[in-house]
């Protein structure tokens, strides 16, 4: 990559589909080539441990993402204070999927609670579409506008059979 001011390096950073030189192109072959290139870039990037925040241990796990992580963390702290170990898997990378890593994070888990701030439980459906989840899986999907409260998560975990 060159920066403005570097002689001979002029190019246009173009938001339109472009060829490898950066020139806008509407050719189908350029479009396919660039789609493949972007896919490779995403798939081959080494995300390392950043793909998810994994905390705690135990046979019960909560899978969540985004802004629901905070209340879930607080709920799990309440559980821990009562001596009930629970795992947190807060996914940060939705795609590309990481099946081996999630399987490893959920090893030995018998109950999974999927927590999300939505009405249609789309995170739960997304997980079901892309991953094999172990044991018994339940969904806690709460739409806004109010944030999910730690107690809602705590209550669902401690009253597992009722839901």
């Amino acid at each position: 990559m060159t920066l403005p001011g570097m002689p001979g390096g002029q190019y246009t950073a173009d938001g339109l589909e472009h060829n490898p030189l950066g020139n806008p192109s509407s050719r189908a072959e350029d479009h396919s080539a660039q789609l493949e290139k972007r896919k490779r870039k995403l798939e081959q990037f080494e995300y390392g441990d950043h793909w998810a925040s994994i905390e705690g241990s135990g046979e019960t796990a909560v899978i969540t993402w985004g802004s629901s992580c905070g209340p879930v963390r607080e709920a799990l702290a309440l559980m821990a204070a009562e001596g009930i170990p629970t795992r947190l898997v807060a996914i940060r990378l939705l795609l590309p999927i990481q099946p081996e890593r999630l399987a490893s994070a959920l090893k030995g888990v018998k109950r999974v609670l999927v927590v999300e701030q939505s009405h249609g439980a789309q995170f739960h459906l997304y997980l079901r579409a892309h991953y094999d989840l172990p044991g018994e899986v339940k969904s806690l999907a709460i739409p806004g506008p109010l944030m999910i409260r730690p107690d809602a998560v705590y209550h669902r975990l401690t009253h597992w059979e009722e839901s």
Binding site: G9, Q10, Y11, T12, D14, P24
Partner: peptide, 15 residues
């Protein structure tokens, strides 16, 4: 706004 790609200067055509 397609102008930048037609010039041999540093261009940004995106948002």
């Amino acid at each position: 706004s397609r102008l930048p790609a037609y010039l041999d200067v540093y261009g940004f055509h995106a948002v």
